[in-house]
Computed example of a mutant assay.
Amino acid sequence: MRTSDFDFVFPSSLLAHQPTQERDESKLMIIHRNNQKIEHKLFKELHLYFEEGDTLILNNTKVFPARLFGKKEKTEAKIEVFLLRELDSKDNTWDVLVDPARKVRVGNKLNFGNGLTGEVIDNTTSRGRILQLHFDGNHEELIKKIKKLGKTPLPKYINRLPEKNDEERYQTVYAKKEGSVAAPTAGLHFSKHLLKILEIKGINLVEITLHLGLGSFLPVEVEDISKHKMDSEKCFIKKNTCHIVTHTIQQKKRVCAVGTSSMRAIESSVSSKKYLNPFSGWTNKFIFPPYNFSIANSMITNFHMPKSTLLMMTSAFAGYELLMKAYKIAIQEKYRFYSYGDAMLIL
C-alpha cells in the first residue's frame, strides 16, 4: 500500500485541544470486524465488551516533562528545547529538538535558569541537536532540576501553553515508569473507577512498558510505506505478564492491546508458538497492512492523523476498508481526534 492511501481530510475543529471533563466520558466507537457493525458508546461502557478471564494490556510508561525554554547566551533569543532521550548520563548529553532551529548552531550556549545551562555540541537533523547540559550537582540532582523547569510536552497541534490540569490529564492513571515524551493516548480514557469495575468483573489488567518518542506520531514522508524507518523505542515486558497473556490465549479469551504502543510492544516479542515472550531492549517494529497479528484479538486506540504510522497499524488490525469507513462516520458524528480525542474499540 501507499502512504497516499492513508490520507484524508477532516475539519480542524475536530482536533481535541482539551481533554473531556471526566476521563471516561469520551466517546467510544465499537468496530466489529466479523460483521462490519459499528456502534457508538461512551468509554465508561467499555466493560460491557469484556468478560471474566479476558486480559487488557496497558502501557505503564510515564511522560517526562521534556519541554524546556531557554535563552541564547549574548543575544537572549528565546529557544525551545525538546528533550527526546538522554544519550549519556556521565557527560549529560541529550538528543533534542530545537525551535527555532535556524538560530541554534554548534557551539551555542543556552541558559534555562536556576543554574541549568547547555551547550550545543553537534547537529543531527534540520531541527535535531546534541545538547550537553551543565549543572552544579550530580546526575540525580540534574534530573530533579529538569523536572522542576520542564513543561508537559503537549503535542504541537495544541497551540497553547500547558495548563495545570495537563500535568495530570496528559498521564494515564496507571503511569509508573518515567521515560516517554508523549503519552500513550488510548490509556488516557481510563479512570480509576473504570479500572476497578474491570477488576471486579475478573478481567486481567497487565502492564508492559514502552517509552514513546516522537517518531510514531510523525507523518510518513515516503510513498512506499515499506521503506519507512521507525525510530527505536525502549520496551520492557515482564515474565508474569507473558504468563497471564499466554493463559488467556490458551483459554480462547479476549486479549486487548490498549493503544498502538502496547500493540507494538507485544508484537516485538513473539515466540514461534505465537505466545508472548519476556523482553528488555529496543524495538523499531513498524506494523502496516498486510500484517498477521499474533497476540491481541482486540484493540483500543484513538483517532489518528492522516498518513501516520499509528493509522497504518490500526488499518492493519481493523482492515483498511472498514477503518476508512469508520473514520468517515467519525467525522460525520463529530468524534474528536488525536491525543485528547475520543477512542475506538476494535473487536
Rank of each mutant, 00 (worst) to 15 (best):
K78H: 09
M299D: 07
P278A: 03
L214V: 13
N123Q: 12
F279K: 02
S89Y: 01
E76A: 14
Q21C: 08
L68P: 03
N240Y: 11
H304S: 10
V96M: 01
D342R: 14
K62F: 01
T93W: 06
H139D: 00
T172C: 09
I225D: 00
L110T: 02
K273Y: 08
L195N: 06
K37I: 04
K103W: 15
C256N: 10
P278K: 00
K41L: 11
K273G: 01
L84F: 03
I143E: 14
R169S: 08
M313D: 06
Q36D: 15
F279V: 05
L87M: 08
V104M: 02
K145S: 12
F50C: 08
G215A: 02
L97P: 01
I225G: 00
P19D: 07
I79P: 07
H189G: 14
I331F: 12
E233A: 10
I31P: 04
L347V: 09
T61K: 01
K238C: 03
K151Y: 14
V173H: 02
L14S: 03
N108G: 05
L154Q: 06
W282K: 15
D231Y: 12
Q21L: 15
I121N: 00
K62H: 08
L323R: 13
L218P: 10
K90L: 11
E119D: 09
E321L: 13
E25L: 15
I300K: 08
M305W: 00
K238W: 12
V255R: 01
